[in-house]
């Protein structure tokens, strides 16, 4: 019995498992960074959608509708690839000699010097930005709606005090908007958490990739414990992990809502 516990303890703390536990940092980083960026992009999108300048309004609307109209995976894959190519193209205009371009046989990059190798860090940052871009479009909608729920009297009072348009926006409108936006933003946050499971598509060795590697059947005693296909057990762990994270975030958002919603209309606390 004691040996069994000791055996499983040492199995679950071997190097591969420790790497798996360490890879949770990628998921958590992507979620937090993606969430922060989504709020920033959402604010930018909503202010554009609310702007008095027609083209800006159009940009805001097009951003939120197009990005929400295509699957998140598509944009999640497309943005890092497109960004990488754009950077390589800019670099190529500077460093590539005509001979090097002529010598290049592959379709991309234009010459070998312009190749940009992306490691885990770069991919993680790009993945966070694309999570922010995708879910920023959802946040744009949420924040746009919240901006419209702020009582008009508050804004009129601010205008009556002689505040300029941008002062009204940033001092009164945006600050009062949060209470109305929180329920929607909590939904966006849940979507972001779930989207962090896609990190392995961008060659990041995240929790999903490690679960696959650890659970794969092993027949060589030299490599480690001989076991059959255990992948579903590892995925079950991740399944439970994500449910727990969702549950924790729900509790967190409830607490924030209680705190922020104090003294404000009860209908804001949906």
């Amino acid at each position: 019995m004691i040996e069994d516990i000791g055996f499983w303890f040492s199995y679950l703390t071997n190097g591969k498992h420790l790497t798996w536990y360490a890879s949770f940092q990628f998921t958590i980083f992507a979620a937090l960074m993606g969430g922060a960026l989504a709020v920033i992009f959402g604010l930018a999108g909503a202010t554009m959608k609310n702007s008095r300048f027609m083209p800006l309004r159009l940009v805001g609307s097009i951003y939120s509708s197009i990005v929400r109209g295509v699957p998140d995976v598509l944009f999640f894959l497309f943005f890092p690839l497109a960004f990488e190519q754009a950077v390589e193209w800019v670099v190529a205009t500077q460093v590539c000699s005509p001979e090097a371009i002529a010598a290049q046989t592959a379709a991309w990059p234009p010459c070998r010097e312009a190749n940009w190798f992306l490691g885990t860090t770069e991919y993680l940052l790009l993945a966070s930005v694309s999570l922010g871009l995708v879910y920023g479009a959802f946040a744009t909608n949420v924040i746009h709606g919240a901006l419209r729920s702020v009582p008009a009297g508050q804004l009129e009072a601010a205008r009556a005090y002689g505040m300029s348009h941008s002062q009204v926006l940033w001092r009164i409108h945006v600050r009062q908007m949060w209470v109305y936006a929180l329920p929607g933003l909590s939904n966006v946050w849940m979507l972001i958490i779930k989207a962090t499971s896609l990190l392995s598509l961008l060659q990041i060795a995240d929790i999903v990739l490690w679960a696959d590697r650890l659970g794969a059947p092993n027949f060589l005693p030299a490599v480690g414990l001989v076991h059959e296909d255990w992948r579903w057990r590892y995925y079950l762990v991740l399944f439970v992990f994500y449910i727990l994270v969702t549950w924790l975030s729900e509790k967190g958002f409830e607490a924030i809502m209680r705190r922020v919603g104090k003294g404000i209309l009860s209908e804001a606390r949906a």
Partner: peptide
Amino acid sequence: IYAFRGSPLFIQFFMFYSLALS
């Protein structure tokens, strides 16, 4: 409902597929 709404579809795919494989 809570479990399937609270976890990513991607993980659900992997989980059920590997379960079926095993």
